[in-house]
Design a protein around this nucleic acid. Structure first.
Lengths: 184, 184
DNA sequence: ATTACTGTACCGTCTGGACGGCAATGTCAA
DNA sequence: TTGACATTGCCGTCCAGACGGTACAGTAAT
């Protein structure tokens, strides 16, 4: 079985969702197994049946976020097959749609980081691959990297809950990023 | 007394330094008072004498990081009084020198966030003021904001320990940010 | 006498995780 | 068809350890 979130008796999915929501509400440092289990409508024993340790749960959460991001990106990229700057443009678009849909930040990452920084290793690997793809596909590597970093900035700031931009500013910036992605 | 880090019997400074280092080494979720006191070469009683609660300690740590950043920025800005784009340019330069000096990330922020997200309120306020200054002073607000976000991206990624750029890439990007800051 | 601690002992709380149990479902032989 | 057994998925309790914080007696320097 892959990292399938949607097993039939969808306890694993509910647990992961509960953990992510909790992280957002009580802060990434106060995500206890008890609280997660309670919010998921599952006993603690049940939680530990699905995820034999907290570490395993956090690994699953990281994988969940990564999968979601990767799928979103794939969807956006395969529409414009291989054209120059298609990867970085897809990144910008994905951020836009995530914003529009009011998609919450990937608070599970922080919870994992708090517990054990090593849990973010898959994130590093994923990001590195993404940067490579962006560079290979970019008409102007420099601009593309700047756009990538600005997006990471936007994402991280809202992840850390210190995003201070107004809607207007965000709109301006995303527009600019779009331009930079399209024409180097 | 202000938030003076350098009181004569420099216990407060040592404690804060110890906490920041610990956060980097054992992860932001495992910074206990005991561990901080031990590393600072101070008894736990002594720590609690200086900071009557963990929350107070974390507030001091946040203020410490903020002060350091603000001072660095002031130093860079006052050299080029009021010229257009001087603020955002100073941000880029500050990042550069911080990098060159191998300055570690502000790991105290994460520890504070873990404990209580509200502790980052001063960070939000500081950032908001900074964004305002950047905008007022920019020849092209849009470009300036993108540069700001890219820098935040760089800082946050290394803060979260998921920075994946090579030295070469970082060099390229910073150069580009410099250009963008200077000429819109 | 005040300041700035040290050192020890202690308390209440929370947490991860181990464990035994248990109902429902599936499997398979008679 | 039925009864016996195995597996799955989960419940609820218990526990040892760690943590934040308190209390307090002592001390060395100013």
């Amino acid at each position: 079985m892959t990292t399938a979130i949607l097993g039939r008796p969808n306890s694993r999915g509910k647990i992961i969702a509960a953990a992510v929501e909790l992280a957002k509400e009580v802060g990434p440092g106060h995500v206890s197994l008890d609280a997660v289990a309670h919010r998921a409508g599952v006993s603690k024993g049940g939680l530990l049946y699905n995820f034999p340790s907290k570490k395993k749960l956090l690994e699953a959460i990281v994988a969940y976020h990564l999968d979601k991001f990767e799928n979103g990106l794939l969807e956006k990229t395969e529409m414009k097959q291989g054209k120059p700057d298609s990867v970085i443009a897809a990144c910008v678009e994905l951020y836009e749609t995530d914003c529009r849909e009011g998609l919450p930040p990937a608070s599970g990452f922080l919870t994992a980081l708090v517990e054990n920084p090593d849990l973010l290793l898959p994130v590093r690997q994923f990001s590195r691959r993404l940067v490579d793809k962006i560079r290979c596909n970019a008409s102007d590597e420099c601009s593309a990297l700047v756009v990538f970093l600005a997006l990471e900035g936007l994402r991280c700031l809202s992840l850390l809950d210190i995003d201070v931009l107004t809607e207007e500013e965000r709109y301006l910036v995303v527009g600019k990023l779009h331009d930079m992605a399209r024409q180097g």
